[in-house]
Design a protein around this nucleic acid. Structure first.
Lengths: 184, 184, 184, 184
DNA sequence: GATGAATGAGCATTCATTCAT
DNA sequence: AATGAATGAATGCTCATTCAT
């Protein structure tokens, strides 16, 4: 993952991975019969890592509103601790365009996330903290799009200090406002 | 640009570009002394293309609110007509992490865009259509993040028909609501 | 060395060296990571070969005069057995003009040789077989120049049979005469 | 000639010659239909230049001894004024090994020179200033070898200031001594 | 399990040379 | 007489992959 984040898939060299692992070229082939297989393994590892419940308070959050806030906070945290993850995710997104296997995995990852967010929104509606007239699926897509935008911008654009945190806060507030605000 | 969008920078072959152009390998070198130079040229072309005023009504939009709406409509249009552009932009974003020249160009592109959006927001405040207490810079960043997210998601994720248009509409509405809604 | 002697540095092809060695192009790269490295290796090998004590009688020669004679005899012998060496040395001399690494090695080779010859001359003076008023350093240079001329001419000019041997004999005699002849 | 002396035949580029001449690639081809033809032209020019009678006193030298001295002085002068010539000559000597056309020209050059030196030696014997028992042809070869050695060493070895002039003087003296000294 | 050595296919780049104008 | 454009044939080098031990 280090190599990919640093040099991209374009720059990933089987040889260098072996060297970094302190083993021989051929030994790495003993475990991963192909460069492709190696990449697949990295992708699975990354997917698993993303599904890990991130730093959650032990007891479930009081409301769906808090849950949603936590979602954004989680991204902020992940950006702070594992910025490279987002780079790799973008590399994967591009690779998925040409590699069906990668595409499949990415879609599964999105589906999983989508389900997770749907749950929150639905719970919010049930709890009465979110407007009842919300289009759940559309809202989930919107949130995903926004969070993807955050990760994309945060890892790959010139930024002033605090800019990203500001944007996260503003988007979170916007979404919160949008979902809770009474509309005419 | 076709080659890059189809195969990525990773898969860009000088030879193939020449073939696609119907000229000899060496002839392409006559015009671009280096693969790098070829890429640079593509990047400049793309940047120029992005700065083109996109399908604007002849007379300036009535209000900044409309201008902002047009901004989102522009993205929707661009996604429809030049989806590949977004793929290349993402390729470039990654490449910028390792290539300072590409980075510089990307930053200039962002600065240009930022200025454009700032103008809209400021005009809106002056016109009284947007809340006066808006943090212009922060809002601009937010909009950029959101639009980046739209492009990223739209070109590189599994989508149901209409999903992207829906998300664009919802985000546009959210932002509009956020900027115009009286807050307590 | 064969390839260099036959086709010169100009005509040295990594590929052909591999073929001549009966191995694959890439295999040769496994051992010499660069064409340059290959050349360096040849140069070191050649330098080592030149430093080998050439066909010496087991017991040290009776006098410095004999040693000096042996020096010329050695060149004659080397010309007979390893004529290619002189071609390569000339190639190297030219290359040294543009390649500092080669230059350095050549200078070391000359320094080593110079020391060797100095020893002979000084011993001759001490033994009383050479004139005591000899400028050692100057004489050494002269001998080197002459031997270089022999190698240069012998390998790269039209010659009649025996011409080179004749010239070697005459120069050896000249030098001997010069160093031993009482002068007014 | 500049290009050859600077970068060698190995580094001679048709293109660069054209650029240095301030004309177009194709224009140079208009005059020299081939790189080979260009080189041939250089060689002829150089040969002509070498045959030019070098700075001679208007009246013929008093004796063959002086003539021979002048021969060495001429080399010293040429080294001072046209050192590059010797580099090119060495390049040519190597190229002659593979290129019969170059070889032929080189041999003609040597024959011309040989005739010139023979004349001097024979005149010296006739004048009674040189020993009558000299082997003319052998002596000429010896002198040529020595002068070639001087040029070779002077242009392509590390040298202390004055070293070359010293060696020229010593060799000239040696030869003079050898040709004039009464022998037992 | 592990490794040094080997290899084929490919790729960016160079350069002498030619062509059309 | 001159030139911009075009081209084929290398050439050094890389890299995923395989093989023998």
């Amino acid at each position: 993952m280090d190599q990919i984040a640093t040099k991209g898939f374009e720059g990933l060299r089987f040889q260098e991975v072996a060297e970094e692992a302190g083993i021989n070229n051929a030994t790495l082939y003993y475990y991963f019969p192909t460069k492709e297989a190696l990449i697949q393994a990295v992708v699975h590892r990354l997917t698993a890592e993303l599904k890990l419940p991130r730093a959650r308070p032990k007891d479930a959050p009081a409301s769906a509103r808090d849950e949603l806030r936590l979602e954004f906070a989680g991204v902020r945290e992940l950006l702070r601790t594992h910025a490279k993850l987002f780079v790799i995710l973008t590399e994967l997104a591009l690779r998925a365009l040409r590699d069906p296997a990668i595409k499949k995995i990415g879609e599964n990852r999105d589906d999983f996330w989508r389900g997770h967010l749907s749950g929150i929104i639905e719970r919010g509606i049930a709890q009465g903290v979110f407007r009842p007239d919300i289009d759940v699926e559309g809202t989930v897509t919107t949130v995903m799009v926004q969070i993807k935008g955050i990760g994309y911008h945060a890892t790959m654009a010139k930024r002033k200090p605090g800019e990203v945190d500001g944007a996260i806060a503003e988007i979170a507030a916007q979404v919160d406002h949008w979902l809770t605000c009474k509309r005419k």
